[in-house]
Simulated scan of single mutants.
Amino acid sequence: MLALGLALNTLGIGLFCWLIFALAVYALPFFVAVTVGMLAFRDGAGVFGALLIGIASGALTLAAGQLTLAVSQSLTLRVAIATVFAVPAAIAGYHVVFALSQIGVPSLAWREAFACIGALCIGGTAWARLTVLARTRPSDSAGVVENTPRPVLTGATHER
């Protein structure tokens, strides 16, 4: 029974970590959805209305960010959008890893170290998943300078 408990605990923590990495891109839209939903509820929209407004604002945030990232040709704008999405993911990753490390790490210094490493990994994952959308389009040359081979000119040219 002890082995089964350890195996299921490891499987559960592994599944939870996979879920955190898979959902890292959605941290900013989730934060926006919760904030706007809470504001709508406070202003009298009701539970159902606040839920709908929150979901719509989160979906709009995600769609606008990904569309702007995919369409933009400015590297500065792409970096800014990826950073705006990666920072909340890193903050969420820090807190998740810090909470999970409390299970088996007694030292506060090691928990902080693990949480910082987790924040970097999860923020980097969000950054990488967002930049996948920013691949160069077929009309772009992908930064490659085309050097077409030119015929070699010799000292003597023959014309006939």
Rank of each mutant, 00 (worst) to 15 (best):
V71T: 11
R129A: 05
S141Q: 11
Q102V: 03
S57L: 11
I20F: 04
L120F: 14
T76V: 15
V71I: 10
G123F: 01
L6V: 07
L2P: 01
L4M: 09
A82V: 13
A86H: 04
R129F: 09
F21Y: 11
T131F: 13
R160T: 09
Q73E: 15
G37N: 06
V97N: 06
V84R: 06
A142F: 11
I55R: 02
V105K: 06
A126C: 12
G124T: 07
F21W: 05
L62S: 07
S57N: 08
I103Y: 14
V84L: 15
D43K: 14
W18F: 13
G37D: 04
A50R: 08
M38N: 05
G44K: 06
I103S: 13
L75N: 09
R111K: 15
S101N: 06
A80K: 08
V145T: 11
F85Y: 10
P138K: 01
S139P: 00
V34F: 07
C116V: 15
L4F: 14
H95E: 10
E159I: 13
V152I: 11
H158P: 04
F31P: 02
G12H: 10
P149W: 13
G49V: 01
T131A: 03
V32G: 03
S57R: 06
H95D: 09
V87G: 00
L23I: 04
T76Y: 09
I117C: 11
I103V: 14
L39F: 07
V79K: 13
I20P: 00
V79S: 08
I55V: 12
I91Q: 02
A45Y: 13
C121V: 15
E146P: 00
W127S: 02
A45K: 10
W18H: 07
N9D: 12
R150V: 15
G93P: 03
L39H: 03
T10F: 09
C116N: 13
L28A: 08
G155R: 15
Q73T: 12
G124Y: 07
P88I: 04
L77S: 10
T148E: 11
V96N: 09
I117N: 09
G155D: 12
T125C: 11
E146Q: 08
A22L: 10
L130K: 00
L28T: 02
H95P: 00
P106W: 05
F31T: 12
A156T: 14
S107K: 06
I53S: 06
A45T: 06
L51M: 14
A27Q: 00
G54A: 06
T76S: 14
L75E: 15
T136H: 13
